[in-house]
Design a protein around this nucleic acid. Sequence first.
RNA 1: CGGGGCGUGGCGCAGCUUGGUCAGCGCGCCUGUUUUGGGAACAGGAGGUCGUGAGUUCGAAUCUCACCGCCCCGACCA
Length: 574
Amino acid sequence: MRMREGYAPTLREVPAEAEVVSHQLSLRAGLIRRSAAGIYTYLPLGFRVLQKIKRIIREELDRVGCQELMLPIVQPAELWHQSGRWEAYGDEMFRVKDRHGRFFSLGPTHEEIITHLVKADVKSYRQLPLTLYQIQNKYRDEIRPRFGVIRGREFIMKDAYSFDRDEASLDVTYKKMYQAYERIFARCGLNTRAVEADTGAIGGSSSHEFMVLADVGEAVVVFCEACDFAANVEKAAAVPTPWPESRSQEMRQIETPGVRTIEELTAFLSVEPQRMIKTLLYLADDRPVAALVRGDRDVNEVKLARVLGVEEVRLADETTIETLTGAPVGFAGPVGLPENVHIVADLEIEGAIDAVTGANRADAHFVHVDWERDFRAHQVADIRTVTAGDQCPKCGEQLRQATGIEVGQVFKLGTKYSSVFEAHFLDEDGKEKPYVMGCYGIGVSRTMAAIIEQHHDEHGICWPPSVAPYHAVIIPIRPQDEEHMRTAEQLYEQLWASGIETVLDDREERPGVKFNDADLIGYPVRITIGPKSLAEGCVELKWRRTGETETIGIEDVVQHVLMKLDIGESISNP
RNA sequence: CGGGGCGUGGCGCAGCUUGGUCAGCGCGCCUGUUUUGGGAACAGGAGGUCGUGAGUUCGAAUCUCACCGCCCCGACCA
C-alpha cells in the first residue's frame, strides 16, 4: 500500500471517547471508528489485522479437521422458542420483525440453528464426530458496552460446534479444540491462561476460558502459583475455613438502631465480620431463598443458582424482604425465618458457634447464635466467591487473583440442545441417541484489542508480525528526490514479491511525521531510505519492538527482513 | 435501570456563572514560499443550523423544560 493512495487516518490526539489503551490506540492508529455505542467500523488497517487473526484461526481449526460454514445472522424465533431461550436471553437479544409480523433474532450465538441444521443431515454414527465453525458478526445488546471493541454489541466471533456419539468422543474433540486454541493464541502473540470456567446460562458440563491477563479485564480469575490450578472466580471452588473458636452462650437479642451493614455492625459491636452470618434473600424462580455466608464473604450467585438447580437467582426487592422477614432491609437472619424460605448455608457457616445475625426485626440483631441449636439450613454448600488469599482447592497454597480479558471459551454442552431439538443419530447398536455436543468461541475483534493491550508502548502499538496489518514500512526521507523514490519503489516491489507486506510512505511529509505514524501504527520493521546511508548503498532498519537499528546493503534487505521477521506461516500466498 | 460527566468545524478544547462585535483557540485540511533524519516556519484560505425541539426575551452557544446521543462508575452483599 502506498500511503498516498491509502486510507490510514491517524490521530494526534486521543479522542475523548476512549479510556483504555487498546481503545485509544485503535482509534489513533486508524484501526476503528465508532458508529454507535458498542458498534464499530473497521478501517482498512484494522480489517487487515482481523483478517490475519481469522487466517490463523482457520489454519489451526482446519488442521484439526474442522470445517467452516456460514450460518444466518437473522434467525427465526421458533428455534429460540423451542430451546426456551427466546425468553431466557432477555433484553440482550436483538429482535427484529419482518413485514408479516414474524419475529427473528439477530444471532447472539448459534447453537439452535446449527443443531437444527445438522439434525436433518447427520443420521448415523458413521458421520460423527463432526465439528463445524464459522466466523461472523454476533449481536448482543449488552447492558453496558465498554472499552471499545472489547465489549461491543456487534462483534466478530468465531464459533464452532462439535457433534460426537458419546462423552468419551466429546472428550477427545474437546481436548483437540483446547490445544488448537492454545496454538491460535500463541500464534497471535498472546500470553493466555486457560482457566476453569462456569458453564453459566448456556448450560453444559465443563468449560475453560482463555484469559489474557490485563488491567482492563472484566473477568476475575484466581490462580495458584504452586500448582497449575486456575479458574474464573465464578467457578472456583472455595475451601472453607473453620469457624473462629468460641464458647457457646445463650442467644440474646440486642438493640442495634440503624445498624444495617456488616461494616456498621463491626464498628457497633466490636465483633469481627468473620463471626457474623450475612443473610441474603433471593428469589429462585420466585421461590424465596436465604443464602448464609460469613460476614466478610460474598455470595456467588452463579454457585447459588447451580446448588438450587435453577437458571438464575436474583436478589429479592425491598418489599419482598420486608414481607418475608418482617423487618426492613438490613436485619435479616436465619433465626425464625418463615417455613417457606429455603435456607442455604455456605460450608463455612456449618457448625457456627457464638455468631451474630440479624433478628428479622427492625433495629435488632441476635448475638451468641449457634448452628443447629438456634437455626438450621435446608442445604449446606459452597456458595461463596473465592478471593485472593484463599487456599488453593488443589494443593492448599494461597490463591492469587487477577483480571483478564476472555478471548476464548471452550465448552462441553452435552445433550442440552440435541435433546430439545430431538437431534438424534443411529448408533452402532441400532439405538437412536442425541448428539453429544460441544461449542467453542473466540472473540476475534476482542482478540485484536487484547493483542494491543499486551503489545504497546508509549509511542503506539508493537504488533507481533503474525497479526500486524503490514510487516514493514518504507520511509523515504526525501520523497521528491528521484533516486530515493526509485530505490524505495524497487525495494517495495521486491519486498512484496517475497511475501513481505509493505507500506510505502510516499507522502510529502517531514520525516518526523512519518516516524511517529510508523510507531503509532506499529509496523514490526521500518526501513528508512535517507541520504546518509543511501550514498553507501545502504538503508536503515529499525525494529519496532526492540528499538534495534541496523544498516543493511540494499541488495540484502529482503533476505534479512525475511529471516528476522520470522513470519513463516503468516506470509500471504494464495 | 441508578449515579456522575459530556455534547461548540475532522480531532482536542475555551466561551455559558453575569444573555448583546463570541462564534473563538490549538491541531488537522487547502494554496504559496522557505524548509526537510523524530509531529517545521511564515503568509493567505476553506470549513460550524453551538446535539434536537419547544419556551423565556427586543435579542439565546449562554437562561428554562423536554427529548436524543456519547463516556465513566454502579446495579442492590443487607
